[in-house]
Nucleic acid binder design. Sequence first.
DNA 1: CGACGCTTTGATTAGAATCAACTCGAGTGG
DNA 2: CCACTCGAGTTGATTCTAATCAAAGCGTCG
Lengths: 253, 253
Amino acid sequence: METNVVDLVQLRRGCAQCSLQQLCLPAGIGQDDLKQLDEIVRRKRPVAAGERLFRPGDTMASVYVARDGAFKTVSTSEDGEEQVIGFHLPGELIGLDGLGHGRHRVEAVALGTANVCELPFEQLAAIASRLPSLQQQLLRVIGQGVERDQDHLSMLVRRQANERIALFLHGLGERLRNIGESGSRFRLPMSREDIARFLGLALETVSRGFSRLQDDGVIAVAGRRVEILDAAELARLAHGVEAGPPAPRRARS
Amino acid sequence: METNVVDLVQLRRGCAQCSLQQLCLPAGIGQDDLKQLDEIVRRKRPVAAGERLFRPGDTMASVYVARDGAFKTVSTSEDGEEQVIGFHLPGELIGLDGLGHGRHRVEAVALGTANVCELPFEQLAAIASRLPSLQQQLLRVIGQGVERDQDHLSMLVRRQANERIALFLHGLGERLRNIGESGSRFRLPMSREDIARFLGLALETVSRGFSRLQDDGVIAVAGRRVEILDAAELARLAHGVEAGPPAPRRARS
DNA sequence: CGACGCTTTGATTAGAATCAACTCGAGTGG
DNA sequence: CCACTCGAGTTGATTCTAATCAAAGCGTCG
């Protein structure tokens, strides 16, 4: 039962020891305040791929943060179309949708095995109202979520397929680097279909986009393994510039 | 100077007398608490069409609510493309972008002459931390903003032009009805270009969409004057149903 | 009255969706 | 150990939607 022991150790480690501390809700909070926050955090056993933290219509009892593993949040329209609202890497808060009416409007699905911290929202709000630094930090985290949504929006609107894909890879790389992983060589936690539903494209278009980037020498891709070979070029493509340095302005080939 | 007198009366009316009270930040807040909130509200003189409440990069000193008139919030990407993030009718909070980093990332532009209330954010947060009911309401309003953004997102992704336009008109009608105006006969506060940049379409496509809806007898439109003739059909179109009742499935005409 | 901005309409084109077939790899079970 | 299946991903052919380019109509405001 080697793994079980490891799990228990993992489960008992508090926010103060967590490697994500600086990126997560506790960022910038003093020792004493951190202790109070730490006390309401429930560290759950691992969730399996495909498991849901909550579903649309559930009362917003808690918010969650992945310690490791990734999640997607999905909104299903009345006609059954699934729209991926966001991907959530470790340290990024999950479940603040539903702040408006107290009920979740999306579902949060684990993309692989994951470990999460659960923070009962009532208690979180109660502590926040006593600790200005936590209130401020909570607002900041919410605001960052709004910013991510807006960036997502800008990515979807009036940008073409290849730009969206480049922007997606570029952004994902940055977020991975933020949490201390390699931003240039990683395994995508989500399927092509998830990416397509996030970017508002057909999954074939996503696949073609990846292939195109590979042909152009910008990335190397094999299934979910991605390596970014030319980060500068990727960034350029992401911001809507047409061609690459090898052929700055060619006629239609 | 008849108008001036009216303006002054207008300026002095507090939240307690405001017709928007139930829709605005004060909703559900008790008399005593309302008074505290009321004291920090600055009621400004009218702003002219095209004037800005704030610009990208400004520190987020205040949030705003229109008492009358409408605003748009616009994000400008590095390549100069303008994306309309949202439209704001009376009672809807403006300026919560920038919660993440303390600086605005969008600009808020008046679509016509408008009257706004300004709430200095520091003071608002300070009062909120003393009044749980206001804190709760503030979170709720923020949450509703997030929900609107998500709806906007869903509207943009994988819906076709005509659906987006129908959804836009349908949603606008509902919001107008909410603030006590007619939801079926109104004047659009924004240009076709603004709508296009909100919906992620070319302005010609928006114009064609309006014409198409008019041809189908769903709306009557003349410039910015819109009348919704068949609300049920509009709702149906908005939710992705193909044809209307008169011609359930016709070949290309 | 004329000019300008906003809107509508028309013709053409480009980009992505859709439909369809095929490849690859991981399990599964014979 | 190998054939088989199943799901994920890739690639190709075709179609269709909406962008783009272009021009004309309309209303308003000097």
